[in-house]
Amino acid sequence: MSNNLQRKAVIAISSFNGPIYPDGHKTGLFLTEALHPFEVLTEAGFEIDLASETGTYGFDFNSLQPPFLAGSDKAAYNNANHPFMVKLNSHLKKASDLKKGEYGVFFASAGHAALYDYPTAKGLQAIAADVWDRGGVVGTVCHGPAILPGIIDSKTGKSIIEGRTVTGFTIEGELIFNILDKLRADKVVPVVEAVTAVGAFYSTSMNAFDDYSVTSGRVVTGTNPQSGRSTAERIVRVFDSL
C-alpha cells in the first residue's frame, strides 16, 4: 500500500431528492448502494465518512421496496442504531467540509438522483480528484459514474476515465424502470452516454440486474444495486495492492 494513503474512505451520496418516477415517487440515495460498500469497507478495516454535496439527502423510493430491500438490509434500515444509519442520519458531511489528503478511497453510491447532481458536484469531484492524484482508488456503482467525467486528472487535464473501461446502469435498466423519457425530458445524461463522451469504454452485463463489476487500474465500477458489494470487494483488493 502506498505510504501516503490512509485506510479511510468517503462514500458519496446524492443530494437530489425529487419526483421522477411515473407514479410520482422520488429518487434519491439507493440505500443498498451505499450500505453494502459501507459494510465491505468497514469489515476491511476502513474508517468511513459519508458525504453529499449539500450535506443533505433523501431516499430513492424504489430502494426501500422489495425486492431491493429485504433481509439483513431491511433490518439495518429499520435499526436506528445501525452504524450506517447513525452515520447517515447524524454525521452526514457536506462536501465542502471534507479535507483533502485524508482519504485513500472515494466511492460514489447512487440512485437515479446521481444523474441530477453528480455532474455538477464540484466539492465531491474535488475530493475524488485529490484521492486520485495521491494514488488512491475511485469507485462508483449504478448511476454513480455520472460523477466520473468531472473528476479530472491533474497531470492530463482530462477525466480520470479517459481510455479506461467502466460500467454503470444500462439503458435497458432505464427502460425497465420506464424512466428514460423522463430523463431525456429533464436533460440528464444516462451513464453510458456520459462516460463514452469523455473517452471511456463502456462494458455491461448480459442482463440489466446481473452482479457485474469492472476494475480498470485504480478505477472500479459496478453496474447496478446487485453490484455494490462486489465493487467494494474489488476496491479493497486494488487498495491493498497499491
Rank of each mutant, 00 (worst) to 15 (best):
Q6D: 12
V10N: 00
I11E: 10
A12L: 15
S14L: 13
G18T: 03
Y21G: 10
D23Y: 14
D23N: 13
H25W: 10
T27M: 01
G28F: 02
T32S: 12
E33T: 10
A34G: 15
H36R: 13
E43H: 11
A44W: 07
A51G: 10
S52K: 05
Y57G: 03
N62Y: 14
S63D: 02
L69F: 00
A75W: 02
A75L: 12
Y77M: 08
N78F: 12
N79V: 11
N81Y: 05
V86G: 02
N89P: 04
S90Q: 15
S90W: 08
L92Q: 02
K99N: 14
Y103D: 04
G104S: 07
V105R: 09
F106R: 07
F107S: 06
S109P: 09
T120L: 09
A121M: 08
L124E: 06
Q125S: 08
Q125W: 00
G135L: 00
V137A: 00
V138L: 01
I147R: 01
L148R: 02
I161Q: 14
I161C: 11
T165H: 15
T170H: 04
I171K: 15
E172P: 08
E174I: 00
I176D: 12
I176F: 09
L180A: 07
L180D: 13
L183A: 06
A185T: 10
A185I: 06
V188C: 11
E193G: 06
T196H: 00
A197I: 04
G199V: 12
M206Y: 09
N207T: 12
S213I: 08
V214A: 07
T215W: 00
T215N: 03
S216N: 05
R218T: 07
N224K: 04
S227E: 03
R229N: 05
S230F: 04
A232W: 00
A232G: 08
E233Q: 15
I235P: 04
R237S: 15
S241G: 07
